[in-house]
Amino acid sequence: MQLRLDRIRKEYGDKVAVNDLSLEVPEGVIYGVIGPNGAGKTTTIRMIMNITAPDSGRVLIDGRPPDGSFLNRVGYLPEERGLYKKMTVSEVLTYLAELKGYPASKARADMVPWLERVNLAEYQNSKVEELSKGMAQKLQFVSTILHQPDLLILDEIFSGLDPLNMELLKDIMMEQKRAGRTILFSTHVMEQAEKLCDHVCMIASGNKVIDGRLGDVKAQFGRNCIHLEIEGDGGFIRALPGVKDVLEFNNYQELALEDGADSQAILRELVGRVKVLRFDVIEPSLYDIFIDMARIDPSQLVADPEGGSHV
């Protein structure tokens, strides 16, 4: 399922929560929406889910406005988690799946492997209120995907999870992607997005800052550099093609490369002349890029409605 936002806008009083945001989520990718708290991520997601109506702009599913079947084909994990406390795990999962038009009998059969997967098998007949917070989170995640949605929308999916469970959910997300599902998730923790997503969209103060394939974004906005440790005289390095600058440290050097420079060519040059102890191409982290980009006043950024953006 492919999702497109066409200049959606939401204002609360004088405050613009989402400012004419456009983005395109291709089918079968993991799409990360990142940005600090209050950037407008949840408002954007709520507009996709038609929980909040946009003031202007459109949400398009496979090129058309969402129809009646959209809700059944999407799995939504809201930022504000919650389940019926008095129902049992099995009842809650069946009920929520049924509300998605998924047959109760199938839900009851399908939940067993899922509960095993997230280590909740023994709680199938326990009441939700008996679960710990982390277990309830995993249960809610299962309820989001049990009905086999084509599109998963996961708001702040990792918040409140321990590293082990984070890994577990990441694995499941990767599997879902391989099964052809489209996943849009939001987080304010960039490291997680970096490990997981194919596409990334950064928003700050309701404006899109960057948007594109993860690699492209890094190539476009990153300052590639090489972490280098050698034995021998490295004085020639500064003159190599593609090298913009060399920072000397006690026992290593950092090479800043020009845009589009070929790090492999530099390595080949080095191997012939000095003994290379360490050659490390360091990609800039999303965090670095974001810090760089968000420092720019977002109102000076022009967002391209066709996806991709430029400064």
């Binding site: 709520r46 929980i51 809700l71 809201p78 504000e80 988690r81 919650g82 389940l83 929520l96 509300l99």
Partner: peptide, 12 residues
């Protein structure tokens, strides 16, 4: 209060 409302309105 249990915040399940958002899940519900994204289903029905």
């Amino acid at each position: 209060n249990s915040r399940i409302m958002e899940v519900l309105v994204s289903s029905v």
